[in-house]
Simulated assay, not measured.
Amino acid sequence: MRLTVEDVRVGYEDKTIVHDLSMCIPDGKITTIIGSNGCGKSTLLKAMTRVIAPQAGQIMLDGKAIAQINTKELARQLAFLPQNPDSSGGLLVEELVSYGRFPYQKGFGNLSKKDKEIIQWALNVTQTEEFRDQSLDSLSGGQRQRVWIALSLVQDTDIIFLDEPTTYLDMAHQLEVLELLQKLNKEEGKTIIMVLHDLNQAARFSDFVIALSNGRLIQAGIPEEVITPEVLEEVFHIDAVIGKDPRTEKPMCITYNLLKGEKNHEKINIPNAYTTHPPLGSVFQQ
């Protein structure tokens, strides 16, 4: 495990958001953090990327606390795409993407041949090369998100953090972004750590899932161990029916009810109906 969280407590002023959390992030895999709004997902991501400092505990990268790693050196190892990236200020796509090479430059030096090759590679792999001379503001939401991912790739890090990379995107663009991240993981060996709200997307695209509730770790493991009625009840306070995605065999939340008072323990046995005959227009259609 290259990246570990050891007894970390994170908060703002007198309010603790993440409580004494410990976990290991699998190397070379896609890890997704799930949980309700305000449970500490984004705060944990910021602590793991040194955007904010823990109140206690430490984040370790290759056995060394990230607090002790030089800023430029850390930027060569970790890339972080926040939920709402700062405005591009009218920058052209290629200009914005080139900023990812800053950790490798001395002073305000010009881009080297290697820098330009990596920028071209990132534009190609994210399929944004055709936009290189356009303003970021002129692109669609899905196109802009791919450009921001290209910026992260240009940092040439082994580990990429993304906070809700599919926010505000329609279903097709969400799938486009997640398939890109999956491709980067499988073909480029990138370790991906992201926050997602959609449970079925988390199950479908993740090798490892971490479930948080009120800043505490509830369950961590492969999707089959985390996307379960019991875990979802504790994390989201819902009564969920879990089946299997007929295309991926990953767990899938078919339906759910809010829990009010005593839970109705009646089990609804309907997954086979969905896995055998998916309804037209369902989420199985692409």
Rank of each mutant, 00 (worst) to 15 (best):
D86L: 12
F108L: 15
L96K: 08
N110G: 08
Q83N: 11
N124L: 07
Q105V: 08
L78C: 07
A122S: 13
Q120D: 14
L123M: 13
A75H: 01
F131K: 03
G63C: 03
L96S: 02
V97Q: 01
R101S: 02
G109Q: 09
L123E: 00
I52F: 07
A79D: 00
T71R: 13
A65S: 14
V125M: 04
A53L: 11
N124Y: 03
N110V: 08
G63I: 06
A122F: 01
T71Q: 11
G57V: 10
Q68F: 07
Q120N: 10
F102T: 15
F80C: 07
G89S: 12
N70K: 13
M60K: 06
L111R: 05
E94R: 15
A75G: 05
M60C: 09
S98A: 15
Y104V: 05
K116D: 04
L74H: 09
L92Q: 14
L74A: 09
E117W: 07
Q58K: 15
I119H: 01
D62K: 07
Q58C: 07
G100I: 05
V125A: 08
L81M: 13
A53V: 15
L78R: 00
P85H: 13
L92W: 06
G107D: 05
A67T: 14
I52G: 08
A75W: 01
K106Q: 11
E129H: 15
Y104G: 04
I52Q: 06
G100E: 01
G63A: 04
Q58E: 15
Y99Q: 11
G100L: 04
S112A: 02
T126I: 07
P103L: 08
A65D: 13
G100N: 08
Q83Y: 13
A53R: 14
A56I: 05
P85T: 14
V93D: 00
E94W: 05
F131A: 06
K113A: 14
A65I: 04
S88W: 02
F80Y: 15
L96I: 10
G107L: 08
T126Y: 00
V93S: 01
P103Y: 06
I66V: 11
